[in-house]
Amino acid sequence: MEAINHLPFIVGAYAAAFVVIAGLIAWVMLDFRTQRRALADLEMRGVTRRSAVERPQRPMAEAEEKV
């Protein structure tokens, strides 16, 4: 058992962890950018949420909104 060089496996495990975690972070960030662009695009075309217009007068409306 001592004959096996352990280093490649340790490096491999840390590399795998790096890849998985970096992948998650990239997924979250790219997704965020996509959604924000889509929202900005819709707003540019004048499509807005009702609650965004009425917000200052009716704080309760915000609480009842659906996601």
């Binding site: 979250v28 965020f32 959604q35 924000r36 929202l39 819709l42």
Partner: peptide
């Protein structure tokens, strides 16, 4: 962060 994305995704969908 993923929850934030999901909320935005639903807003985009509703709009």
């Amino acid at each position: 962060a993923a929850m934030r994305n999901e909320i935005l995704r639903r807003r985009v969908r509703t709009l």
